[in-house]
């Protein structure tokens, strides 16, 4: 089964990104496919490679980046939400790409399930 995931919050302030990450891992472990993870609202901050948490903390940007590149998951950051928050190509971690909101709608169409994580 193909899953789509929408993340509405950035890392650290809310649990949303953590929950989505654990969920994404479990989706793959269950033998399903992740069609796309779409980052919207403050969720775009999950792609900022300048994020540098303390060494004893989890690094959500790095975790998403690794999950995306290792499993070929499409990690899409909303361009409109990203630009107004100063997230641009030059700060994107590996595996993320910036694109339009149409990618979210398309994920809703193409995936069998869409799960939203937010505040």
């Amino acid at each position: 089964m193909k899953f789509g995931i929408l993340i509405n919050e950035g890392p650290f302030t809310h649990q949303a990104s953590d929950s989505a990450y654990r969920f994404a891992e479990a989706v793959l472990a269950r033998g399903h496919e992740i069609y796309r993870v779409f980052f919207y609202h403050d969720g775009v901050y999950n792609s900022n490679r300048l994020s540098q948490p303390q060494t004893d903390d989890r690094n959500l940007v790095a975790l998403w980046s690794k999950l995306g590149t290792e499993h070929g998951i499409d990690l899409v950051v909303c361009v409109g939400a990203a630009l107004r928050r100063g997230v641009k190509d030059e700060v994107l971690a590996e595996g993320f790409r910036i694109s339009g909101l149409g990618q979210l709608v398309e994920a809703g169409i193409q995936a069998d399930r869409l799960v939203v994580f937010g505040d």
Partner: peptide
């Protein structure tokens, strides 16, 4: 931002 999604979504035949 939800309104922005709806306006984009309207372009899809859904």
């Amino acid at each position: 931002e939800c309104l922005e999604v709806v306006l984009v979504a309207a372009a899809f035949d859904q």
